[in-house]
Design a protein around this nucleic acid. Sequence first.
DNA 1: CCACCTGCTGTTTTT
DNA 2: CAGCAGGTGG
Length: 715
Amino acid sequence: MSMDIETELNDAQREAVLTTEGPVLVIAGAGSGKTRTIVYRLAHLVRQGIDPAQILLLTFTRKAAQEMLNRAGTILGHPLTGTSGGTFHSFAYATLRRNAADLGFDNGFTLMDRSDCESVCKDVKDSLTLGKGDRSYPKKATLLDMITKSRNKELPIESIMEREAYHLTPYLDDLNSIAAGYAAFKRQHALVDYDDLLFLLDELLTRNEPLRNQLQARYRYIMVDEYQDTNLVQARIVQHLAGKRGNVMAVGDDAQSIYAFRGANVANILDFPKNFEGTKIIRLEKNYRSVQPILDLTNEILQGATIRFDKHLYSDLKSDALPEVVYPLSDQTQARLVVDQILELGRKYSLHDVAVLFRAGYQSFPLEVALTRVGVDYQKFGGIRFHEAAHIKDVLAYLRLVVNPHDLMAWQRALEHVKGVGPKTVAKIYKAMHTNDAKYMATVTRKHESLRELLNELDGLRNMPPKPSAVLERVLAFYQPVLIDKYPDDYPKRQAGLEQLSQIAQNYVDMDQLLGDLSLDGDPDEEKRKENAVVLSTVHSAKGLEWSAVIVIDLVEDRFPSRKAMQRPEDLEEERRLMYVACTRAKQCLKLFVPSSVYNRQSGLSDPTLPSPFVLELSGGVFTPLKESYSGGLEKRWPVDTKPVHREPAPSRTAAGASADSPAPGTVPPAQLGFCTHKIFGKGKIIACPEPNKYKVNFPGFGIKTIIGDYLEML
DNA sequence: CCACCTGCTGTTTTT
DNA sequence: CAGCAGGTGG
């Protein structure tokens, strides 16, 4: 492949590629050739004679980094060797491992995944004897959420609570104690969570000047992708690495910021020019991905935003076909209709070029069943990850113990397979081992004969050369009976997973590296898109990707936007950007599905739905509406808003629904539903208007109340 | 102290 | 439908 900067790039892209010195901020709209720009810049730098090892490319997923490096290699005609590319987290992991002793980890450390972190939270909670008998006590997942959110946003737990979890206020003191206990536990057992990777790197770079200088000297050219989704500590890391020279190119799009929930701060991209003096700002606005009718629709989604974006994408790609909005009767029939659409699209496109997107992982379950029934293969992104499966974690626990004897989480997993040994016994054994209490060890091993064997086996592992594949081989051999015993129903399937793990291990010489990569990057086998498998993905996991045809399902209130995001206006804004990301993935064909009812587990019945506000506010001209007929087909549905909708004397939330389609009878157009305040209950969300001037309002902490309009102030 | 059973609660997104 | 607390029997 050739590299012709003159003909293959537009003016803005070319400028971004050719500006190699000094800070550059590239505001890259969706589909504006951002990846191409980064790839060409990589190639250009190397062609200029820059040593590839002096380039650092930080991206959001390791997959993205790998793909960019590969493409740059293709352009150059030889692979880029020595370039560091990956996520902030993987870069941090590698750097910390080389400097573990400096951070007080003399025996190395182990990276915990999400479920490890949750169980630590639970253990700490139990050991502080908090929440006994309280059924509504925050779950371990909630506890961890609050702790990491507080860290990522660098705010006290109290502020996080005030802003987004008012109902947890009674537990504030508990949460602070649990957070402290959690931190102490990690230290004590040489464990590190995802957040620690970033904070420890920041600490290291701040404190260790020689190291900082060394890294600054090495990485003379830094590129950071998806800058809108970095948080405060990531921005500091970039500043440390860039140093005075400030040779940083940040690329991102404020309209695609969808990770505020984990502490991402859009201010980073907006303030980049302030933090790096003399920043050259380049905007990429021409879209090369989507046909114009799709962009007309996505531009409208952005127009509804409270804080307007200075952005309007345009494209040369024409099409006569408008995006479609399809109204199935229920989420069950939606699955069937989507399968029909997939089969039809499969005639025009390769199936791996067709994607179904949704807000949350579980929303694809009915579709997965339907696809399996008709025999269509699919590949799902954003579900349970490879390394989170119980049997994989079991096996990895033994590997972890080879590296880090303080890893209590791993001890628990490993020893609890012995019949008669539970959490309490493990804790005692752990303590006895670390205090050389031979007497207890003798007693306990006499009581459980198979424990003795297991400990001998572990010693054997520790004494062999730490070659991952060899150690794993031995672990798998003695894990085999446990596997069959523990999973009598489906152990053959899990066995296949373990063999896959063996395959992966072949590629590693270093145990730490293997463990880190598994936790930081999930299933390395997922890299390649399967041929002839339709893609199912959460919108978050679809970021940065594109398909010829995209179907978005479950576009109803409480699902997309998610129910949890309906409490606060700023969360709703993030959902809007998420909707924008979803729709801008489509190149030629976009279909939005709005089921009229969804199955409700609690009642066992189908509940009627309200269409997502993001669909309601679209003007009639940008899409073709189709509804499911009672016979199961699709027919054109004419916009019914010819008869004027009776409007309440205007709660002023008009941004939504200016030209909305008429809602189903008996419901109220969400255009009128917004937020309000009440003298006693405070701020709440209006969820229905059963009769004129009477509203059902959900007040956080008080629940749903029906209130006369006169007592409410509309926001 | 551990394993197993019962009945209640409440469902986002990810490195 | 899972995840979890609490009770019971070994």
